[in-house]
Design a protein around this nucleic acid. Sequence first.
DNA 1: GTAGGGTTAG
Length: 696
Amino acid sequence: MRRANFRTSNISCVNQLNRTTSCSYSSQSQEDSVRKRPVRKTFLKSSNNDDLITDLCKHNKFKEAIDILCNQRRLKEALQILHQISHPSPSIYSSLIQFCRQNRALEEGKKVHSHLKSSGFKPGVFISNCLLDMYAKCGNISDAQTLFDEMQERDVCSYNTMISGFTKGGSLEQARNLFDEMPQRDNFSWTAMISGYVRYNQPIEALDLYRMMQNFENSVSNKFTLSSVLSAVSAIQCLRLGKEIHGYIMRTGFDSDEVVWSALSDMYGKCGSINEARQIFDKMVDRDVVSWTAMIGRYFQEGRREEGFALFSELIKSGIRPNAFTFAGVLNACADHAAEELGKQVHGYMTRIGYDPYSFAASALVHMYSKCGNVENSKKVFNGMPRPDLVSWTSLIAGYAQNGMPDKALEYFELLLKSGTQPDHIVFVGVLTACTHAGLVDKGLQYFHSIKEKHGLTYTADHYACIVDLLARSGRFHEAEDVISKMPMKPDKFLWASLLGGCRIHGNLDLAKRAAEALFEIEPENPATYVTMANIYASAGKWSEVASIRKLMDDRGVVKKPGLSWIEIQRDAHVFLVGDTSHPRSKEIHEFLGKLSKRMKEEGYVPDTNFVLHDVEEEQKEQNLSYHSEKLAVAFGIIATPPGTTIKVYKNLRTCVDCHTAIKFISKIAKRKIVVRDSSRFHSFEDGNCSCRDYW
DNA sequence: GTAGGGTTAG
């Protein structure tokens, strides 16, 4: 019956609609019965409106018909109706143009424009402004510019539209030129220009303009202005100014909304006042997933892990669904803090709600597992990704490199090349690190040369630091020096620190002095240089030099960073400092360490006291060593977990030689696999051996 | 009389 209705329609464009619909209906083959039902459903649904549209057109109510079609996003059909009308009204044009703008339908918008020109319609300033905005929003600023130049009459809105357009795929300079030359400005003009500067990362200019605006009559900042201005304040981290604006908002608070609160919270967060950021966040009524994710991320940035994770749990409870950004943020924090158990829970949650294996949250999982030393899981997640991105490849390769499986790292790098993915400069850092950890000097050099010769990439300072690390660790100092003398950029602190590390291993005092001098110049505040240098002198028995280094540290007010280790047991992090006795089970831990010490000596352990900063009696040195934070954490791990459980300990600094030797013995005596992630790599101890093959 | 301006997340 409805089809019959179509056939009687005398509006040709609607007949065309009819043909399209009935064609798709009748073209279905017999065997296609499964698909038949849904198509029929659509047919019935749309036919209702089609009747109405036919009817409206019959009664010359074209505007209404076009509005219905536009609302159903049937722009092509709306255009067909336009072509049937001899003299379309301005409101028909404005409707169509605005729908094209909303739907970013540039092609259709252009058709309306050309129809308008060919029909001889002379658009007023309103329709022209609509066209300007349509072009600007569709990213076609050049057509907007052409039209703007042709316009006989322009009003403040025409200028504002162009300014806004220029500040978005256009140029800030052109926007500012228009802003300066326009005859009069209103709030829209000021806000468009200010937000443009913010968007182009020019916060100072944005704030200068805001100050100008305040001195300007008839322009009062509102919620639109303030949210942009707050963003500028965040960028320059000026808390004083931010507080001033906060005060202004409080005084005129009627005009603010969630967007302003969000910007205000962000301002406090970026200016380091995280508690105030949280207070504002708590007062917000319509907190969306973005504001939640931002607030959680602020905690992690500040190193306030517990609060970050707590807020994440609140988010889950709130019923708002976290998205890929949220997961990636939390997982990266888990990676940084080696919170594997928590990371696993997040992974479980993601699996339950069905995460998208194509999204960057999946690569964050790969990263998290790699950083937690669980390369097996890292690989599992990686294998589940239909199209692993370069971040995932890099995480997995770096994970293998750092976890004592450099061969696997290189194997995956070769797979990456075979997959046709173009490697970038970052993945090569992982590759070179793998070679360093495996002691594969010549292979590393080959990869190094391939970066430029085979892959056409530009060397970065990181690549040079890696290659110097590779050479210095294996004692090839002449080659290392040769690389340094020929590199195109100034060696950075990472390179010098690598060189110094190599000198420490091989006792190269002269070169160590040179590296340390360079480091003292670049970062005199870093205690690591002083400590390493003192240790090198101590190994050489040069105690007066050790003392002078210590004096230098004192004179410059450099404080040694305390060694800190932690272990996660049932999602709680237990943190240990050097010689720590604050843990509730401290007495047990020390007793256990005492027993272990005895067994270790029976097995042949000799404390290595070389790497101690202080020049003290041997027995005292031994005492110091037994209190190192990683030993405390390992001991606690053993007494706090069932036999056979793998112990995972994390240390903020590099593990010392003595602890390394001691933990090898402990792994054998306690029959435990012990994984220690220090500031540069993983050590996986098992049955008296370490995955790093004592090369780190 | 219409239209033109905004923040926060890996």
